[in-house]
Design a protein around this nucleic acid. Sequence first.
DNA 1: CCTACCGATCGGTAGG
DNA 2: CCTACCGATCGGTAGG
Lengths: 200, 200
Amino acid sequence: MAKQGRRTEVLEAAIRLFSARGYHGTSVREIADALGMGSGSIYAHIESKEDLLFEVVDQAAERFVTAVRPIAGGPGPAAGKLRQALIAHAEVVAASRDAATVFLHEWKALSPERRAAVAAKRDAYEELYAGIIRQGVAEGRFRAVDEKFARLLVLSAGNWLYEWYDPAGPMGPAEVAERFADLILQGLQRKETGRGRPSV
Amino acid sequence: MAKQGRRTEVLEAAIRLFSARGYHGTSVREIADALGMGSGSIYAHIESKEDLLFEVVDQAAERFVTAVRPIAGGPGPAAGKLRQALIAHAEVVAASRDAATVFLHEWKALSPERRAAVAAKRDAYEELYAGIIRQGVAEGRFRAVDEKFARLLVLSAGNWLYEWYDPAGPMGPAEVAERFADLILQGLQRKETGRGRPSV
DNA sequence: CCTACCGATCGGTAGG
DNA sequence: CCTACCGATCGGTAGG
């Protein structure tokens, strides 16, 4: 418990520092300093700096997949699933914003094999959204849009959250997600404007 | 011309390397190597590594603002401007993807003063989109959505482009931008589905 | 633009 | 978890 707890503290310090300064911009000494340790002592808890990065990135990827998978595979119409998936995504960002930042920003610093492992998880995550969109089109509730672009629009909004969302701010993650979901589902343009084709 | 051309080569090498490995992950020696120079010789062209980063980031920011400002300030309905702005944005990414990556990824590595200068340009850029959206709402062509979220949705799609868009791929930047614009303007959901409120 | 070099810092190890 | 230390590499400078 003590050793396990200390290891968690090392992870948490790494998340904070990697998020703020980047992987290459953070030294092992800085992580050790944050815990009041000597710079060599940290190797009692980790094997290498890159192991630490992988653990942070992989855990973050896992959190997203775990949160959204049951929604995508669950019952109900696609629009509701899309809304719930976005809420779940935003909640993960709100709860682990620094880890999400490291996941999205620093995976390139991993070795090729580990990068591939993370890419596989990210692909699996994106496929959850693709499935929801295909379902909506198949149900006839969504327009027959290109699935790839609909998925990219949703993921762009979700993935960009870490850049601007402040968990300490006035708006909760669910509220933020609902607004994006409304916009994505209903569009920016008024429906009754113009007759037939949209004005531009 | 010779010296000026060489300096441009230094910038271009820095863009490529900063984009691929990050600012802190790239050494001055690697940039010099890419140009077949000794590691000290690069200081005949630049004053410091951070100066180099600032120049790359600032130039990229300038490209986006320059491309979109005339559209936002020009004539015509908001929907058309939004479409044109997204196309212009995608064209900048297509033409300078690595520079856009450095701009969006590495600005945190700048000194506080320079970071503030870049943030000001980024804010000005975002304001261009805010203006277009306000215009659309004022015209009655856009739904009375929260301007902030509409702007964030557009910018998220645009800013995430550098992560997945391949300029060498089959789809041109204008085509990509048009698809996003259609989705954002019209929404994912069919209009005639359900009566009254959307199904979820 | 080169050669030669600077002090500082890097990730990591040894031995306790 | 500490102290002491390793070779390698860092950004940058001097003198030509």
